[in-house]
Design a protein around this nucleic acid. Structure first.
Length: 444
DNA sequence: TCTGGGGTCCTAGGACCC
DNA sequence: TCTGGGGTCCTAGGACCC
């Protein structure tokens, strides 16, 4: 019983009820209040009416018109969460937060070590729950078990405001009667597939061979679900996990079509991403533009730079250029900009067009590094304007490993063809920066 | 007035390299 | 002019989680 899982009950709604006594005992729904909002958290009083997380606000309003609807105060939630996480770290230094309201704790890192009896585990978890409600005013449900899987399932069963300890040897008794959706990694699509094969419970799943499951769900998913169905779970609780991507996105109240407006929004999203990268001391190589169209189809377009950046000009340039590859004429409901391939350093000023390679020329590079040196000398990066002796003018679409991809534009047939060159192609040279258009958002 | 925003992980195909 | 296989990088999409 070395893993503890804690989950704050209806967290956002509980904080609101804590801070505003008139909301206590009443249905409270926190989420987006705009025309396209969804429910983030529903209090237990609201769940009685069938209101659930991720439900559209319009549906929530029709199910529970008398509820209090709130947009949420994330600064407050973060502060409450920090108090809770501190309490957990006081228990054991090995704490893995999953979100503001949830975390695993490895009790092996605790002073007294892993609790050896169920009674000891119960006493420990019970103290923790009291401490949390006393220090934050919100209740928590806790599960204690031998693995992450079982601890999480236990806390789910403990909800709300409860405690469940899974004793060693009883795992399959707890697990096998549950519906497959109880397993982490079984969402609507996987559940539908499995149901077609007559698999409804975790016990049913456990009777399928690993190779059949791999055939059905793919290598990684099949193997992992097979193990989980047998309560085999050796995933460690990991305190420090580095982030792999940073992104921002906005859904609009109505679909947008004006290309200049869309471009200005993308530039603004890029600014927000850049600000977050800078604040976190991160930079990234791959820039992704996400577009959700009027019919909810979602597209992504990405470009990878030769080296990481956190420069707002580069991010903005590349992201707006990626938008050119998307047909937005039918209307766009969401735009997003993300950065991945993160490092905790920035290669200074390498891609700034007007401050380009005053880079030291490296002599005597070993063969394996020649390509990288070419990258640095040329400084090709997506978004940069270029001229090619044969194909005319265009802009850099992507680059990597000794090649650079260029999209050529012509006045008559935008967008023009995409062609790939060696990074050191002498026919390919940087073009002067284009005239910056005025910001349509300023006018709007 | 169906369907947010922030993430993670996986797959598959093509390019490229050995 | 005949056939491979493995490995990495990149892109796009999808499932899933809170």
């Amino acid at each position: 019983m070395r893993v503890l899982h804690l989950d704050l009950d209806a967290f956002f709604a509980s904080v609101e009820q804590r801070d505003k006594p008139s909301l206590r005992g009443k249905p409270v729904i926190v989420g987006g209040l705009g025309p396209r909002g969804v429910v983030s958290t529903a209090s237990y009083e609201a769940r009685v009416f069938g209101v659930r997380s991720a439900m559209s606000m319009s549906e929530a309003r029709s199910r529970c018109p008398h509820a209090a609807y709130l947009s949420g105060r994330f600064g407050v939630y973060r502060a409450v969460s920090a108090v809770v996480m501190a309490r957990l770290r006081a228990l054991s230094p090995v704490v893995e937060p999953l979100s503001l309201d949830e975390a695993f704790v490895d009790l092996a890192g605790r002073d007294g070590g892993v609790p050896s009896t169920a009674d000891e585990a119960r006493a420990l978890a019970s103290d923790l729950r009291s401490t949390i409600v006393d220090s934050t005013g919100v209740t928590a449900s806790v599960g204690v078990a031998g693995s992450k899987l079982m601890a999480k399932i236990a806390s789910e069963q403990a909800k709300p405001d409860g405690l469940v300890v899974v004793e060693p040897g009883t795992e399959l008794d707890v697990l096998h009667p549950l519906p497959i959706r109880a397993l982490p990694g079984v969402g609507p699509a996987t559940a539908a597939r499995l149901t077609r094969f007559g698999v409804k419970t975790v016990g049913d799943l456990a009777r399928i061979t690993e190779s059949d499951l791999v055939d059905l769900l793919g290598e990684a998913h099949g193997r992992s679900l097979h193990r989980l169905s047998l309560a085999h779970d050796s995933r460690p609780v990991s305190a420090e996990r580095e982030s792999k991507s940073v992104s921002v996105e906005d859904t609009f109240d109505r679909d947008l079509t004006d290309p200049a407006l869309l471009a200005a929004i993308v530039a603004r999203l890029a600014e927000r991403v850049a600000a977050r990268l800078v604040k976190a001391g991160l930079s990234g190589r791959t820039i992704t533009l996400k577009t959700r169209l009027h019919d909810f189809t979602t597209l992504s377009r990405s470009a990878t730079l030769p080296a990481p950046t956190d420069d707002v000009r580069v991010l903005s340039r590349v992201a707006t250029r990626l938008l050119d590859d998307v047909d937005t004429t039918g209307g766009v409901r969401l735009l997003g900009v993300g950065v991945s391939g993160l490092s905790d350093w920035v290669q200074d000023d390498l891609f700034v067009a007007d401050a380009r390679p005053s880079r030291p020329e490296v002599a005597d590079e070993p063969d394996g590094q020649v390509q990288e040196v070419l990258h640095e000398r040329r400084g090709w990066s997506p978004g940069m304007d270029v001229v090619h002796a044969v194909h005319g003018s265009g802009w850099v679409w992507g680059s990597g490993r000794g090649r650079v991809t260029v999209r050529f534009e012509t006045a008559s047939t935008p967008p023009g063809p995409v062609r790939t060159f060696a990074v050191d192609d002498p026919e390919l040279t940087p073009a002067p920066p284009p005239v910056v258009p005025t910001d349509p958002l300023a006018a709007a």
